[in-house]
Design a protein around this nucleic acid. Structure first.
Length: 295
DNA sequence: AAAATTTGACCCAA
DNA sequence: TTGGGTCAAATTTT
């Protein structure tokens, strides 16, 4: 009984938190839209807005990964699973989404490759290509009826840490300054490996202030993208605490809000594609720890 | 030398 | 068969 009550309580808190995040996301998205209006030349602000949106997306998805089967409430649905024949072979390891192996004697069991587990998927539009994770490009494809190719990235730590997160990036036809970025799966890797920024709570000594624009591009770019990415300074330093600070800022102003996010949450199976994933994604508590530290 | 990218081949689902 | 996601050898970058 008691446990159940606790769970309920927890669930409520999670839900409240989720609500705040969703709201924050909407604000950030709105801001992003405003800033991307043709007239304004707020490159920096745009970048920041995009980062904020990304941050909210991630926070929401993390939270959703915790959400028990109860009402999902947030934008990320979930489950529906059922299928997934699971032809023995236990899985767990080794089934990280890519299992193609050519030369082999081939399919001993035909049906076994269909690992249609679903990973959380969300796509957003942004002028910014980098986020706090490190990615490795592993492919690029021309897409039918699309002007620009799509590039494929996987987490750098896929093999060292078994992180299953991937993302796809494609320049948008209209508004070529923007990219459509689809994230698939949440990171299970040690983020601090990728993001060396940590520190105490003194926060913002952001290198954001300096707007010299002679940065070399990161590495998330497509060949065709490279040509015209130049005006984007990207700085980094986004760390957990920074994100939290931003969240606070956003939460404080609490008035008018519209709903219409630029990003789209959904499941892979539908319009996008299927993506294999072994077990469920589980997240470290570090995020929550840092959260409780700061809040 | 190691790590990242490029790019055509390969493979699967529709 | 075709479109699109992934592999992996070659190549480039760090």
């Amino acid at each position: 009984k008691k446990t159940h009550q606790m769970d309920t309580k927890k669930a409520l808190k999670l839900k409240a938190m989720n609500h705040q995040l969703v709201e924050g996301h909407e604000f950030a998205t709105k801001l992003q839209q405003l800033l991307s209006q043709p007239g304004s030349g707020h490159g920096l602000a745009e970048d920041l807005a995009a980062k904020i949106v990304v941050t909210f997306n991630k926070a929401i998805s993390v939270l959703d990964s915790f959400e028990p089967i109860s009402s999902s409430s947030s934008s990320l649905a979930a489950v529906e699973g059922s299928q997934n024949a699971s032809c023995d072979n236990d899985g767990k390891f080794e089934d990280s989404g890519d299992s193609r192996k050519r030369l082999g004697p081939v399919k001993g069991k035909r049906g076994c490759y269909k690992r249609k587990k679903r990973a959380e998927t969300w796509t957003m539009h942004s002028t910014v290509l980098d986020d706090e994770f490190s990615w490795r490009k592993y492919g690029q494809k021309e897409i039918l009826n699309a002007k620009f190719p799509r590039s494929y990235f996987r987490c750098t730590h896929k093999f060292t840490q078994g992180c299953k997160a991937t993302k796809q990036v494609q320049k948008m036809e209209l508004e070529p300054k923007m990219f459509s970025i689809t994230y698939m799966g949440t990171h299970t890797c040690n983020t601090n490996t990728a993001t060396p920024t940590i520190k105490g709570c003194d926060d913002h000594q952001d290198e954001i202030t300096m707007d010299s624009e002679e940065h070399k591009s990161p590495s998330l770019l497509t060949t065709s993208m490279k040509e015209e990415e130049e005006n984007h300074l990207h700085h980094h330093g986004s760390s957990t605490e920074n994100n939290l600070v931003w969240q606070d800022l956003v939460f404080e102003e609490d008035h008018h809000h519209h709903h219409q996010a630029i990003y789209v949450c959904g499941e892979t199976s539908q319009e996008l594609m299927v993506f294999g994933a072994g077990g469920d994604f589980e997240f470290s508590d570090s995020i929550f720890d840092s959260c409780s530290n700061l809040c």
